[in-house]
């Protein structure tokens, strides 16, 4: 059936939870693209046939006209599915930059296609440019602050080479610190610290 593969592609994207990414399915993607080319070939051959029969392609309403129309509509539908797939993925890719930062873990990066990787890096650059122009880092401070300081536990050996805005400390694994929220947030989002509440 026409359009089934494209539908599968979109469904696959939607099958995982909101904000999550599936492996870029280049196999299925290329199959849909091939289907598009096939539709286009058949569309053209039907139009040629009508021209050979001396019919006016614009006004003739015979079986071949409707055949061609179906190929055209199937192609458009496939295009919309392909675009939706890439565009929605791009939206998630952008959100990853906000949630995780410009350095992504390998498990996530593996799910990208080559152009998606490129797109992520470019987007990261654009956002940096905007933020440096505003002289404001927008990626921190994602939740309204209750207290300027929070208690955190270090989850990984991140060493003592880190200088925070108001002090330096030895951030050995499992040590607990009382830090400025804005300083700690970048480490929390990278999974290197966790906030202790209560």
């Amino acid at each position: 059936m026409y359009g089934r593969k494209a539908c599968e592609l979109v469904k696959e994207f939607a099958s995982v939870g909101k904000g999550q990414l599936t492996q870029y399915n280049s196999d299925l993607f290329e199959q849909v693209v091939a289907e598009c080319s096939q539709h286009h070939l058949e569309l053209q051959s039907l139009i040629r046939k009508m021209q050979e029969e001396g019919l006016d392609v614009q006004t003739a309403r015979n079986a071949d006209h409707y055949g061609a129309l179906i190929h055209h509509l199937s192609l458009v539908r496939n295009k919309r599915c392909l675009m939706a797939y890439v565009n929605n993925r791009a939206e998630i890719i952008r959100s990853l930059l906000w949630k995780i930062g410009s350095v992504l873990p390998k498990e996530i990066e593996e799910k990208f296609s080559h152009t998606e990787e490129e797109y992520f890096n470019k987007y990261s650059g654009e956002l940096k440019k905007y933020m440096s122009k505003m002289e404001l880092d927008l990626t921190v401070d994602m939740v309204p602050p209750k207290d300027p300081y929070i208690k955190v536990r270090v989850l990984d050996d991140i060493g003592d080479g880190i200088v925070l805005s108001d002090k330096t400390a030895n951030f050995a694994r499992h040590s607990i610190h009382f830090l400025k929220r804005t300083d700690a947030e970048q480490f929390i989002s990278r999974g290197l610290m966790e906030e202790l509440t209560g």
């Binding site: 693209v33 295009k79 392909l82 675009m83 890439v86 565009n87 791009a90 296609s113 152009t115 998606e116 490129e118 797109y119």
Partner: peptide, 9 residues
């Protein structure tokens, strides 16, 4: 994004 869409699709 235009470039990305053009390249991919």
């Amino acid at each position: 994004l235009k470039h990305h869409l053009e390249e991919s699709v």
